[in-house]
């Protein structure tokens, strides 16, 4: 469903993402890990077609993001690091707008908005102006715009930031249910980045860890934590190993 083929991104001299490849199959929930500045957001922006890669290519549901961008984008729901919201719009109006630009036919929009309001716990604030919502509610609206068109692929950049513990649990359950084969027959494929390792342990089947733009680890969660070592220990080991061996770290 999602394929990254040798993706690199350079900002001038700085290499933010360095030859990253992976493949995610239908129904998988992948945790995308890495320390601050590792290149997670950059990689996700490339997968969603917001940024072009300097090298390599991204395929969504078989559609190349560079040569067939409209089809590829139709298949993605994307929650950016900063939720993309119009503060002056009300929640319902905003979701209706998103439903339209995502290409949902006119007749299906109302139902999609209702379903999304219910799923993201937004029914009580549907007429509120987005700018007046708390951070957690804005994050929920951001999640709503990512899932409203039932895209087969979801790319979520730190989806639970700013949520309260109850909400975190609900959103995690929502993400897990999206990936399960549902009654509607749509099974979503999810990549989510996070700094909360317990979140990965709770909902992901697989972990991709990048550090300094390079892929360091790509394995099923069960395999990583077998033998009793925690995800945290693995994370620390993988990111520390690089500090010691990377030539730029020595010269800096």
């Amino acid at each position: 469903m999602i394929e990254a083929r040798g993706i690199s991104k350079r900002y001038g001299e700085h290499v933010a993402v360095d030859d990253v490849s992976f493949e995610v199959t239908r129904g998988e929930v992948v945790g995308f890990l890495g320390p601050n500045g590792a290149g997670k957001t950059t990689t996700m922006r490339i997968l969603t077609g917001f940024l072009p890669p300097t090298d390599g290519t991204a395929l969504i549901d078989g559609h190349d993001m560079l040569t067939d961008p409209l089809q590829a984008r139709r298949s993605v729901g994307y929650l950016p690091e900063m939720p993309p919201l119009y503060p002056e719009m009300d929640v319902e109006g905003y979701l209706r707008f998103v439903a339209a630009i995502k290409g949902l036919p006119r007749g299906a929009r109302k139902q999609a908005v209702e379903r999304t309001l219910a799923r993201c716990g937004l029914l009580d604030v549907r007429r509120r102006v987005i700018g007046s919502l708390s951070k957690g509610y804005r994050q929920r609206v951001g999640l709503g715009q990512a899932i409203i068109h039932e895209p087969p692929v979801l790319i979520l950049d730190e989806p639970t930031v700013g949520l309260d513990p109850v909400q975190i649990r609900e959103i995690r359950a929502l993400i897990a249910s999206l990936a399960a084969p549902g009654p509607d027959g749509i099974q979503h494929t999810v990549i989510l980045s996070t700094h909360i390792l317990s979140e990965v342990e709770a909902i992901c089947q697989r972990v991709i860890l990048i550090h300094r733009g390079r892929k360091r680890l790509d394995a099923p969660l069960a395999q990583i934590v077998q033998g009793g070592q925690g995800l945290e220990a693995v994370f620390a080991r993988e990111t520390a190993r690089d500090e010691a061996t990377a030539p730029e770290a020595a010269s800096a």
Partner: peptide, 14 residues
């Protein structure tokens, strides 16, 4: 400023 460019440019719009 609203980061909504990320929404517009990743939607199936020209």
């Amino acid at each position: 400023a609203n980061h909504t460019d990320e929404l517009l440019l990743t939607s199936p719009l020209t």
